[in-house]
């Protein structure tokens, strides 16, 4: 582990990222918007209800909204942070020198991925105090926050590794960026559309039941899986309707771990030319 964190690429990238004023202003505005949203919501809800207090139900609603905002943040920022990691080095003509160093391809790819997502992790962690405001009003357990953070981490790693993979495989950052955002949109919007479509088809052909396709589309859609984490009853309902007893989050974890592992493997094996291939 120490060896992984003493990764030269990781150390250098983090140094460069936090040397830039952009990172700090980004962090400042993120926290500002989060803060205004949370305090505004609490203030508005308590004053509009006229009760002068904030109920656990409202607290849970706030928690749900915050969770979705952060998921949106991960889905939209991760491609931007990772899709240029290797291709921008190629464009800046720094890649060849990096590839002739003694660092292994895994070290370079892992360092690039970790340094890119570390900024997003910082955003998420720095938002925790605001996020945990909901604890003051009840309705949400710390365990639930921990589970949701693990869910974020997995999503981050999977989308991030896809960005690094496209960045390794394509020569230009713009192509890599489009491919990563395209994949992200497929995993969120397109799977959502297919889910609705398959539910409609199931409703016609199967009455109250749902086809295994509906289960599959639901299980790889981050928004649906987040809902099952926030409302475990919803997951039970899907299991009951599809007849597939594996909870959605288990399938989601397996699928996104496979995406992560596959993307990392491709990136590592394609970063350098295979000098022995022609033999």
């Amino acid at each position: 582990m120490k060896e992984l964190l003493a990764n030269p690429v990781l150390v250098k990238e983090i140094k460069l990222r936090f040397r830039s004023v952009k990172s700090f202003t980004g962090l400042f505005f993120y926290l500002l918007i989060m803060g205004v949203f949370v305090f505004g919501f609490i203030n508005l809800t308590s004053s509009l209800s006229g009760a002068g207090f904030f109920s656990p139900d409202e607290s849970f609603l706030l928690f749900t909204m915050l969770s979705y905002i952060q998921l949106g943040l991960i889905l939209f920022i991760t491609p931007g942070l990772t899709a240029g990691t290797i291709s921008s080095e190629r464009e800046k003509q720094t890649l060849n020198i990096l590839l002739t160093t003694a660092q292994s391809s895994f070290q370079i790819i892992f360092g690039k991925l970790l340094s890119s997502i570390s900024f997003l992790l910082l955003l998420l962690v720095s938002g925790l105090p605001i996020y945990s405001m909901v604890f003051l009003y009840g309705g949400v357990s710390p365990g639930q926050i921990a589970v949701i953070f693990l869910f974020y981490l997995l999503t981050l790693l999977a989308i991030g590794s896809l960005g690094v993979m496209y960045s390794t495989l394509t020569r230009r950052t713009i192509v890599s960026m489009i491919s990563t955002y395209g994949t992200m949109i497929f995993l969120t919007a397109v799977t959502g559309f297919f889910l609705v479509l398959s539910i409609s088809i199931s409703a016609v052909s199967m009455g109250m039941g749902l086809s295994p396709f509906s289960y599959f589309w639901a299980s790889i859609n981050p928004a649906v899986v987040l809902l099952t984490l926030l409302e475990p009853g919803f997951s039970g309902e899907i299991v009951r309707m599809t007849g597939i007893s594996v909870p959605l989050w288990v399938t989601y974890t397996i699928f996104y771990l496979l995406v992560f592992a596959g993307s990392m493997w491709l990136s590592v094996s394609k970063l350098r030319v295979n000098m022995n291939k022609y033999k």
Binding site: R272, K277, Y278
Partner: peptide
């Protein structure tokens, strides 16, 4: 020689 390009033979 710098292992950046794969030779054909």
């Amino acid at each position: 020689l710098a292992t950046l390009l794969q030779p054909t033979a």
